Every structure is written in C-alpha cells, then in structure tokens.
Amino acid sequence: MGLRALAGAALLAALGLNAQADPLRIATYGPDLSRDGPGLLLRDLTRTGKKADPQIAAVVQVIAENRPDILLLTDFDWDHDGRALTAFADLLAKAGLDYPHRFAARPNAGMATDLDIDGDGRTRGAADAQGFGEFTGQGGMAILSRHPIGPVIDHSGFLWRDLPGQIMPKLPPEVTAALRLSSSAHWDATITIAGKPLHLLAMAATPPVFDGPEDMNGRRNHDELAFWLHHLPDAPFVLAGMLNVDPADGDGRADALARIMAHVTDPEPRSAGGAAAKGGVNDGQKGDPALDTGDWPDDKPPGNLRADYVLPKKGLKILDAGVLWPEAGPLAEAAQTASAHRLVWVDLDWP
C-alpha cells in the first residue's frame, strides 16, 4: 500500500469509517432455553460456580463462536419483566458479546384460553393455550442486536380464521372464533443499521406433528409461514426463525415454503456436521443432509431435518452463510450439548 493509500485509510479510521464495511451477520438459533415452570430459566441462568448449568454454558459458547450482529432466539422463555433475557445478555457480555438492543414480547405459547382446543373434554391444558405451553411465555422468542430495534409490529394476535386461503381444520365455533394463528409469535421488527432500516420478520412455527388425523399442527405450521405471503414489507427484509418444515423430508406441508422462496434468496447454509450425520432414518431421506439444522434421534422419524432458516429478500447481496455444526471437536460437543437445533447464519453486504 502506497503512502497516499495509507493516509487515506488513516483518515477514514480517524473519522470512524471503514474503506470496506464489515458484513452484517444475522442468525437464528433455537437454544432450548425453555424450562418446565415460570422462573426456572432465570434460576438456571443465574447459577454460578459448580451449580452453573452446562447446557447454558454450551449455548453461550456456540453464540460466542459465531458473534452475530442480530440474533433471533426461538424457544426462549418469556417473563413479564424480561429478567431472563437480561440475565442471558449478561452472560453473553461476559463472553465478549454486547447486545445493547433487545426485544421480547409475550408469545402465544402458554397463553390460557379457557377453551377445549384439543377436544379432550378439559380446559387449561398445555394444548388448550393459544400456543402449546404449560405456562405463559414458555418457549417464546427474543431478539438481541448490536443495532437499534424499533418499531416492532407484533402480529401475534392475528386470528387463524382471518388468513386468506387458510386450511384450518373444522373446530368448534367458539375455538374458531378465538384461536390465533401464531403458535409463538410473528414479529416485523425494524432494525436500523448505518442509518438504513432492515425488517426482521421473525417467527417460530409449531412442529407439524404430535396431532391426530385432522393434522391440526401440520395445517397450522403451513399457515404460519403462509401468513408472510400477505405481510411482506416493501422494503429490505430478512425472514428468520424456526419454520419447522423441511422442503424434502419430514411430515410438513412444504408448499407454503415453496411460495415464500419466490420472494427471497435461499443461501442454502451448510455444515460439515450435518453432512456427516449418517445412519438410521437419515439414510432414507431425500434432502441434502448438509443443509439440516436439527439433530434428532437417528433411530426413529423424522431424523435430522432442515428446520431453521435465514432468508434475505431477493436483491440483497449475500456474502456468506452457514450452519454452526462442526463434524468433531469441542465446538461440535458444545453444539450437541446446547440444543437439538443448530445456529444458522447469513452475512449480508450492508448497506
């Protein structure tokens, strides 16, 4: 580099500018930070020393390895005062990750309805909540960001019956009139980076299993994703979260995913660990195992699947993408200890 170039670089540094901006890394992760009762996650997050939770330590290790600028957490218990999220952010700060901007709102998971949604003759069960959950906030979502968040449009109160073209099963009239579409949440969060807004379309859909021949969960999973076909912003966006549908394998209805793909670029993030996962159910699957993001038991269905996605709007420049799932080593062990889900990330050239 010549003297003039060096002087120019020094001037840019003095002005707080970069000749070439760093990529913007956006990630989604289902860290399995949900517990069996309210307050238990906060308890586990604040334990120290010999009582520290090794699963939580593994989650922190995975995120610290990836260092995303914007991180959507799914399957993270919500509490009214956000104490669990604050405690988790404090643990990340100790690992060198500072997320000054955070957002979480009450999810539909565990929100009581006083209705017999699952038809078992009783109310107030986990399956009778707006979204499956033993208590309010179980398995919610949260956004951690280095950049300002807001405004956030929370679509979680949207009724399933009101979705155009919905495939809702036949339910009692009082259930149809009250049941929300989101099993957890649908958020349109505006995040401002370098003065320009990016919409993070965040969601966590119900797994398309654990039901009967009416296929209520399969239908709901489909419609939760189809919701965005009617609510895509006319602005740069990234659709991210636990979609819980694999385009080639598993029990999900993949046609809504196929229609979404017409509006986004699929960077097809890959991992060595996923590619190396062989045996059992996995050997009979049709999809590319390197794209899998969920590591479930190989001896019974569904096996490993692609369940978690980061999908930028068409036209956004993608620099890189991946699934944090090493084939072997300490980080592979941490990923396995942390969760059945693997962290998925995409780097954008922004602005």
Rank of each mutant, 00 (worst) to 15 (best):
L91W: 07
N66W: 00
L159Y: 08
D215I: 05
L291N: 03
G30F: 00
A5N: 09
R124E: 10
Q61T: 14
L6M: 12
W350S: 08
E134A: 14
A19G: 11
I149C: 02
G329N: 08
P302F: 02
L72N: 01
D162Q: 09
D188K: 09
R35T: 15
P297G: 11
D154H: 03
A95E: 07
D288M: 10
L331G: 09
A332P: 05
K313E: 15
P207S: 14
A87E: 07
G121P: 01
I167F: 03
P23F: 04
H186D: 08
D246I: 05
N108C: 09
D162L: 06
G279V: 00
M203N: 15
D234G: 08
H263S: 09
H101S: 00
A21M: 07
T206R: 10
P169R: 06
G279Q: 00
R35E: 15
L97P: 01
Q166D: 12
V209Y: 14
A194D: 09
A14W: 09
K314N: 13
P151S: 00
F158N: 10
L11Q: 14
P236A: 10
W345N: 02
A256K: 07
H341F: 02
L42E: 11
N18V: 06
L324M: 11
D32N: 11
G119E: 08
V323T: 15
G140I: 01
D32H: 09
D32V: 09
D154W: 02
K50N: 11
P297V: 05
F132V: 15
A104T: 14
A21E: 14
A240Q: 03
D215S: 11
G82A: 06
P326A: 05
A127E: 14
P23T: 04
K300Q: 13
Y99L: 10
L33M: 10
R219A: 10
L291Q: 04
L319T: 05
I193S: 03
P330S: 10
E224H: 06
A64G: 12
D79L: 04
G322C: 09
I149L: 04
A57T: 11
A276L: 00
D75C: 00
A204C: 12
G139I: 00
Q138Y: 01
N244L: 14
G315V: 06
D44E: 13
E65I: 01
A13F: 08
V281T: 01
W187Q: 05
P164K: 04
V152H: 04
L33H: 05
R124F: 02
G322A: 09
W296H: 15
L163W: 02
N304Y: 06
I193R: 07
D299H: 01
P68N: 03
V59I: 05
P54K: 04
V281N: 00
D234R: 15
L40Y: 10
Q166S: 14
Q130Y: 01
R4W: 13
R47G: 07
Q138V: 07
G2T: 14
G329M: 07
L24I: 07
L201S: 11
